[in-house]
């Protein structure tokens, strides 16, 4: 893993007690300040993060999951 992901994951774990109220939402974390941005989509979280830190990169994940996105999604529904 890269430094961004390593450090981002550490900060995410520290923040988890605060973030858990928004489980299922997405978070973008700026790793040098620990500042974080939560929204119901990663697009929105990144937009908020970039408006404050236009040149920074962020660790991104879905709150309550280890991953930000999955290729193993199952679409469910009622026929």
């Amino acid at each position: 893993m890269s430094q961004l992901t390593d450090r981002g994951r550490e900060i995410y774990n520290d923040l988890y007690p605060v973030l858990v109220a928004n489980e299922g939402d997405y978070v973008a974390i700026e790793i040098t300040t620990g500042d974080f941005f939560v929204a119901d989509s990663l697009d929105k979280a990144i937009l908020m993060a970039r408006s404050k830190y236009p040149d920074k990169e962020f660790y991104c994940t879905q709150i309550g999951k280890e991953t930000v996105f999955s290729f193993a999604n199952r679409v469910t529904g009622v026929r």
Binding site: S2, L4, T5, G8, A28, I46, A49, R50, E57, F58, Y59, C60, T61, E66, T67, V68, F69, S70, F71, A72
Partner: peptide, 14 residues
Amino acid sequence: KVGEGIIELADGTN
């Protein structure tokens, strides 16, 4: 590039 994250691949690996 706006960041990094962990993704789950179709075979279940990250």
